[in-house]
Computed example of a mutant assay.
Amino acid sequence: MSSPTPTLPHGALVLFSGGQDSTTCLAWALQHYNKVETIGFDYGQRHAIELQVRPSLLQQMRGFSADWDTRLGEDHMIDLSLISAISDTALTSDVAITMQDNGLPNTFVPGRNLLFMTVAATVAYRRGLDVLVGGMCETDFSGYPDCRDDTMKALQVALNLGMATRLKVETPLMWIDKAATWRLAQEIGGQALVDLIRADTHTCYLGERGALHDWGYGCGTCPACDLRARGYRQFVARA
Rank of each mutant, 00 (worst) to 15 (best):
C219M: 03
D94L: 10
P223H: 05
C25H: 05
Q156S: 14
L51Y: 11
G210A: 14
V36G: 04
V194E: 01
D200A: 11
I176C: 00
N106A: 04
S87W: 03
A164H: 12
S2M: 08
P223Y: 05
D195Q: 14
Y33P: 03
F64H: 08
H202R: 12
C137N: 15
P172C: 08
L206M: 12
G40P: 09
M174Y: 05
T122H: 14
S3R: 12
V157T: 09
A48M: 11
A239L: 11
L58N: 11
G162A: 13
L129H: 06
A164E: 07
A66N: 10
K178W: 08
N34S: 13
R183F: 01
R46D: 00
C225I: 05
S17E: 03
V169Q: 14
P4M: 07
L51R: 15
V53P: 12
N113M: 09
V95M: 15
I86M: 10
L173E: 03
V194G: 01
L51V: 10
A29W: 09
Q234I: 04
L72I: 10
L57W: 11
A121Q: 02
D42N: 15
A180M: 04
R127Y: 05
L193H: 10
S87F: 04
G231V: 02
L104G: 09
G111E: 06
F108D: 02
F116W: 04
I83L: 15
P4C: 12
G210W: 08
A48C: 12
V36E: 00
Q31N: 15
T122S: 06
D226C: 09
T221S: 04
R230F: 02
D79S: 14
I39D: 07
V36L: 07
V133C: 07
D75Y: 14
D75T: 14
A239C: 11
C25L: 09
A180Y: 01
I86C: 04
I86R: 15
L80N: 08
C219E: 03
C204W: 13
Q20A: 03
R209P: 01
F235P: 01
P145F: 08
T165M: 11
N102V: 00
T5V: 05
M136N: 14
R233D: 11
Q234T: 07
Y125E: 07
C137D: 14
V109M: 06
T70K: 09
W68A: 03
A179G: 07
D149E: 11
G135E: 09
D195M: 09
L206S: 10
E187S: 04
D69T: 10
D200M: 10
V169W: 14
K35P: 01
R46Q: 06
A121G: 12
A224P: 04
L159E: 04
E37N: 10
L212F: 03
R126P: 00
S3A: 09
W175E: 02
G40W: 05
Q191E: 01
R230A: 07
Q59W: 05
A185Y: 09
H202I: 08
L161N: 13
L206P: 01
P105F: 06
M77C: 14
T139N: 04
D94G: 09
L115N: 02
S22D: 00
F16H: 15
D140Y: 00
N113Y: 09
G44P: 06
T107V: 07
L161S: 13
P55N: 06
A211Y: 08
R209S: 08
R166S: 15
L173D: 05
A192P: 04
T171L: 11
Y205F: 14
W28E: 00
L26C: 06
